[in-house]
Simulated scan of single mutants.
Amino acid sequence: MTRFRPCIDLHEGKVKQIVGSTLTDDGAGLRTNFVSEQPAEYFSALYRRDGLKGGHLIKLGPGEDNDEAARAALTAYPGGLQIGGGITLENAAVWLIAGASHVIITSYLFDERGRFRPDRLQSLIAEVGAERLVIDLSCRRERDGWVVAMNRWTQPTDLWLNAANLRALSGACAEILVHAADIEGQQNGIDEELVQNLGAYAPMPVTYAGGANSLADLARVDVLSQGRVDLTIGSALDIFGGEGVRYADCVAWNQTDEGGHAG
């Protein structure tokens, strides 16, 4: 069964919802859907109260403000959140000690030209174990499919999101996280073809994020992926200023599926 996965996106130390395609190094043209008056630990405590596990805590950009907010969120929900954003071999274990259940690896797996570095992945596995790693394969759509993007989704890599690469990475991590970067934060609907492909080809758990705008998207992802892909909903959630989805309904979805069986 597809589950709702919560999120906390941090930018300059504050919880925000940002249109992913506008996130650049210089900040020019950044479009923000929501800036919370509540600190990060408010949301992690909320997820802890409601028994939501496997959410991702993403630091969108470097800085001590983001680090402090991330540490506070992990302290409020130890073992309940995965953390991503600037994770490297040098700090992966530090964030696990700080309370993260997993570390999410993105740009570190590539060199400055966007070439995939399997040796870096093997080093991370040796350091913290594949069972504590989530590989972020957030991607942009190209004519021939989806290409993984690094550096806050601004730079394409040489790694394509396809069946062969998913199989190759299956033993190297506990889970795959995929943001559809072109539609992230726009609330115009999920990328149904991408979700369907992830459900068909991914041999490990997958969480998809991007474009969700209604509770019905949980049911749609469940059907498209045969229940094998979980869904993150961000900007559309009422707790993030959205109008399309009630957080309480997502919690209820996780507790009971449509057939009435306990989730």
Results as ranks from 00 to 15, higher is better:
residue 19 V to N: 05
residue 2 T to Q: 14
residue 248 A to C: 05
residue 100 A to E: 03
residue 173 C to F: 14
residue 108 Y to E: 11
residue 262 A to S: 14
residue 30 L to V: 09
residue 120 R to N: 12
residue 111 D to F: 07
residue 189 G to S: 05
residue 18 I to M: 14
residue 250 C to Q: 12
residue 179 H to R: 06
residue 236 A to E: 14
residue 263 G to K: 10
residue 24 T to S: 11
residue 154 T to R: 14
residue 121 L to K: 06
residue 257 D to W: 15
residue 228 R to L: 11
residue 202 A to V: 08
residue 224 L to N: 06
residue 35 V to M: 09
residue 111 D to C: 07
residue 225 S to W: 07
residue 36 S to P: 05
residue 134 V to L: 01
residue 182 D to T: 00
residue 128 V to F: 02
residue 108 Y to P: 04
residue 52 L to S: 03
residue 207 T to E: 11
residue 177 L to E: 01
residue 75 T to L: 07
residue 70 A to M: 03
residue 191 D to N: 11
residue 87 I to E: 03
residue 204 M to I: 15
residue 204 M to K: 12
residue 193 E to D: 14
residue 119 D to V: 03
residue 80 G to D: 10
residue 85 G to S: 06
residue 241 G to F: 15
residue 134 V to K: 00
residue 74 L to F: 01
residue 163 A to C: 01
residue 154 T to W: 12
residue 22 T to M: 06
residue 53 K to Y: 00
residue 6 P to G: 10
residue 55 G to A: 07
residue 125 I to M: 11
residue 77 Y to P: 02
residue 95 W to P: 02
residue 149 A to F: 14
residue 29 G to R: 03
residue 130 A to K: 12
residue 252 A to E: 15
residue 13 G to L: 10
residue 32 T to S: 13
residue 106 T to V: 08
residue 113 R to D: 15
residue 93 A to G: 04
residue 159 L to W: 01
residue 227 G to F: 08
residue 196 Q to V: 01
residue 148 V to R: 07
residue 66 N to G: 11
residue 201 Y to F: 15
residue 1 M to S: 13
residue 60 L to N: 08
residue 247 Y to N: 02
residue 34 F to T: 04
residue 135 I to L: 15
residue 156 P to E: 10
residue 106 T to F: 06
residue 169 L to H: 03
residue 16 K to S: 05
residue 183 I to C: 13
residue 147 V to L: 08
residue 78 P to Y: 04
residue 246 R to A: 11
residue 235 S to W: 14
residue 129 G to M: 01
residue 116 F to D: 13
residue 73 A to T: 03
residue 44 S to T: 14
residue 212 A to N: 05
residue 77 Y to D: 15
residue 255 Q to V: 03
residue 23 L to P: 04
residue 214 S to F: 04
residue 106 T to A: 15
residue 21 S to N: 09
residue 188 N to W: 09
residue 135 I to T: 11
residue 216 A to Q: 15
residue 16 K to C: 11
residue 212 A to I: 06
residue 206 V to F: 05
residue 140 R to Y: 03
residue 247 Y to H: 08
residue 252 A to Q: 14
residue 5 R to I: 09
residue 169 L to Y: 09
residue 141 R to D: 09
residue 38 Q to N: 05
residue 180 A to R: 01
residue 233 I to M: 10
residue 192 E to N: 06
residue 212 A to K: 03
residue 118 P to I: 04
residue 83 I to Y: 01
residue 7 C to H: 11
residue 39 P to D: 01
residue 215 L to P: 08
residue 74 L to H: 00
residue 209 A to T: 13
residue 71 R to Q: 07
residue 30 L to N: 02
residue 64 E to Q: 12
residue 57 L to I: 04
residue 124 L to M: 12
residue 33 N to R: 13
residue 258 E to L: 13
residue 143 R to S: 15
residue 17 Q to G: 04
residue 68 E to G: 08
residue 130 A to R: 12
residue 245 V to F: 09
residue 35 V to Y: 08
